Lab assay of single mutants.
Amino acid sequence: TGTRRLSDLRVIDLRAELRKRNVDSSGNKSVLMERLKKAIEDEGGNPDEIEITSE
């Protein structure tokens, strides 16, 4: 578990975070980053400090 910047995430991490939020996880990295950023902002979170749970 740790905090990472949105830009540091790999595509696989972006998809996992989107799936956790029940958000569409298809598309390229830039699309996924925008989608995740919006989802985090909608939750009231900070997209520059994403809580990542290692699996």
Score class of each variant (00 low, 15 high):
42 D>A: 12
1 T>F: 02
19 R>F: 08
31 V>N: 12
45 G>E: 09
48 D>A: 11
1 T>E: 09
17 E>S: 02
15 R>D: 02
23 V>F: 12
34 E>K: 12
38 K>N: 03
22 N>E: 12
28 N>A: 12
17 E>L: 11
41 E>Y: 08
19 R>Q: 15
35 R>F: 01
48 D>E: 15
43 E>S: 09
23 V>K: 14
2 G>I: 15
19 R>H: 11
42 D>L: 08
36 L>P: 02
4 R>F: 15
13 D>M: 03
39 A>C: 15
6 L>N: 01
12 I>N: 09
43 E>C: 02
44 G>M: 04
32 L>G: 01
27 G>W: 00
13 D>Y: 00
39 A>W: 09
30 S>L: 13
38 K>L: 09
50 I>F: 05
9 L>M: 15
22 N>Y: 03
44 G>E: 03
48 D>I: 05
7 S>C: 07
15 R>V: 14
46 N>E: 06
21 R>W: 01
47 P>C: 14
24 D>S: 10
5 R>F: 07
46 N>H: 07
30 S>E: 14
28 N>T: 12
26 S>E: 09
16 A>N: 07
40 I>E: 03
11 V>H: 05
13 D>A: 05
41 E>M: 13
2 G>N: 11
19 R>T: 15
51 E>G: 14
17 E>D: 00
54 S>Q: 04
54 S>T: 13
35 R>C: 02
49 E>P: 07
36 L>A: 05
37 K>V: 09
34 E>H: 14
21 R>D: 01
50 I>C: 08
42 D>P: 04
39 A>Q: 12
9 L>Y: 07
23 V>T: 09
4 R>K: 14
41 E>L: 13
2 G>T: 15
50 I>H: 03
26 S>W: 03
3 T>F: 13
43 E>K: 06
38 K>E: 08
2 G>C: 14
54 S>M: 13
38 K>C: 10
5 R>N: 05
20 K>L: 02
39 A>R: 10
40 I>W: 04
21 R>Y: 04
23 V>P: 01
15 R>T: 07
42 D>I: 09
30 S>D: 11
7 S>A: 15
17 E>P: 00
19 R>C: 11
51 E>S: 14
17 E>W: 01
43 E>G: 08
47 P>D: 05
37 K>Y: 08
12 I>M: 15
42 D>M: 12
7 S>Y: 06
33 M>Y: 06
18 L>M: 05
44 G>P: 05
36 L>G: 03
18 L>Q: 00
17 E>H: 01
23 V>G: 11
45 G>K: 11
26 S>D: 15
8 D>C: 06
29 K>A: 12
19 R>K: 10
40 I>M: 07
3 T>I: 15
49 E>R: 15
17 E>T: 01
4 R>N: 05
54 S>D: 12
16 A>M: 13
33 M>P: 02
21 R>G: 00
28 N>W: 01
40 I>K: 04
15 R>N: 01
53 T>N: 12
54 S>E: 08
4 R>W: 15
22 N>V: 04
31 V>R: 14
13 D>Q: 14
34 E>C: 09
43 E>Q: 08
5 R>D: 05
47 P>R: 10
19 R>A: 15
5 R>L: 10
2 G>L: 11
38 K>Y: 05
54 S>N: 08
5 R>H: 12
22 N>T: 06
39 A>V: 15
48 D>C: 11
14 L>H: 01
48 D>T: 10
15 R>W: 03
36 L>Q: 02
3 T>M: 10
8 D>Q: 11
34 E>I: 15
50 I>P: 07
32 L>M: 08
28 N>L: 09
7 S>D: 09
27 G>A: 03
2 G>W: 02
47 P>K: 04
18 L>F: 00
4 R>D: 05
19 R>V: 14
30 S>Q: 13
36 L>H: 02
24 D>G: 04
38 K>M: 04
11 V>D: 13
10 R>K: 10
14 L>A: 02
26 S>I: 12
35 R>W: 00
6 L>S: 03
51 E>R: 15
29 K>P: 09
4 R>E: 13
41 E>H: 03
49 E>L: 13
6 L>Y: 04
22 N>M: 10
52 I>C: 11
50 I>D: 04
19 R>G: 14
44 G>W: 02
2 G>D: 15
46 N>I: 04
47 P>F: 11
12 I>V: 13
27 G>N: 00
14 L>S: 00
39 A>M: 05
15 R>I: 12
32 L>T: 01
38 K>V: 11
52 I>H: 12
12 I>C: 08
34 E>N: 13
46 N>K: 09
36 L>M: 06
10 R>P: 08
36 L>C: 05
5 R>K: 15
32 L>C: 05
30 S>C: 09
10 R>N: 11
1 T>W: 06
10 R>T: 15
41 E>G: 10
52 I>W: 14
37 K>H: 10
47 P>N: 05
26 S>C: 10
29 K>R: 15
14 L>G: 01
8 D>F: 01
9 L>Q: 03
13 D>E: 14
24 D>T: 03
31 V>K: 11
17 E>G: 02
46 N>D: 09
51 E>V: 15
22 N>F: 08
22 N>P: 00
52 I>G: 11
12 I>E: 15
48 D>R: 08
14 L>C: 01
17 E>K: 00
6 L>V: 11
28 N>C: 13
48 D>F: 03
11 V>E: 05
21 R>K: 02
26 S>F: 05
39 A>T: 13
31 V>L: 12
28 N>D: 15
42 D>E: 12
6 L>P: 01
43 E>M: 04
11 V>L: 15
39 A>H: 13
45 G>L: 10
22 N>Q: 10
24 D>W: 01
24 D>F: 01
11 V>P: 08
45 G>V: 06
10 R>M: 13
18 L>E: 01
6 L>D: 03
